[in-house]
Design a protein around this nucleic acid. Structure first.
Length: 186
DNA sequence: TGCTCCCCTG
DNA sequence: CAGGGGAGCA
């Protein structure tokens, strides 16, 4: 390819790049997007694909990207529910007989496991509402197991149905592509 | 049919 | 976390 042609091509690409700076949509999902998604999990366990699109405006969506994001939250939930069940069974083994004895504080083992998973750097203040939802989830598992419902292969479905209604509004700041810097800097 | 959830793997 | 498969829903 003659030099003047490649020069012209570069010129066009440069122009396009300048134009794109305004939106600057990334090709795929970055580690920062993953980190952001994990923080969003503190507010929403079951985000709709539509919601995700509005909160990840710097991402160029397509089928794969959308399903990947959806998949992330699915994986988040798996870890979440596994921890809940494990902790609930542990409590039962430890002799706990009432849900009143079950509470989630910021220094309990379960909280630390969750925080380590979704907020490893521990540079984000986990919202109080998440602790409430987590506690409800834990008690939900506890009661189900105590009642022997876990003999039913699909016993967790009922719990999922309860938890999916407890999503909170995700703060507006999460809609900003630079929300991580804004969130973790103060 | 396409999307989403969940389960199970690796 | 990603892949793959089965189930449910529109």
């Amino acid at each position: 390819m003659p030099d003047h042609d490649s020069t012209a091509l570069l010129s066009r690409q440069t122009k396009r790049r300048r134009v794109d700076i305004g939106v600057k949509r990334t090709e795929g999902l970055s580690p920062n997007h993953l980190k952001k998604a994990k923080l969003m999990f503190f507010y929403t366990r079951y985000p709709s694909s539509n919601m995700l699109k509005t909160y990840f405006s710097d991402v160029k969506f397509n089928r794969c990207i959308t399903s990947q994001l959806i998949k992330w939250f699915s994986n988040f939930r798996e870890f979440y529910y596994i921890q809940m069940e494990k902790y609930a069974r542990q409590a039962i083994n430890d002799g706990v007989t009432s849900t009143e004895e079950l509470s989630i504080t910021r220094d309990c083992e379960l909280y630390r496991a969750l925080n380590m998973h979704y907020n490893k750097a521990n540079d984000f203040e986990v919202p109080e509402r998440f602790l409430e939802v987590a506690q409800i989830t834990l008690r939900e598992f506890f009661n189900a197991i105590i009642a022997g419902k876990d003999v039913d292969p699909s016993w967790k479905k009922a719990i999922y149905k309860v938890i999916c209604k407890l999503d909170s509004e995700v703060p507006e700041i999460f809609k900003s592509p630079n929300c991580l810097q804004e969130l973790l800097h103060e």
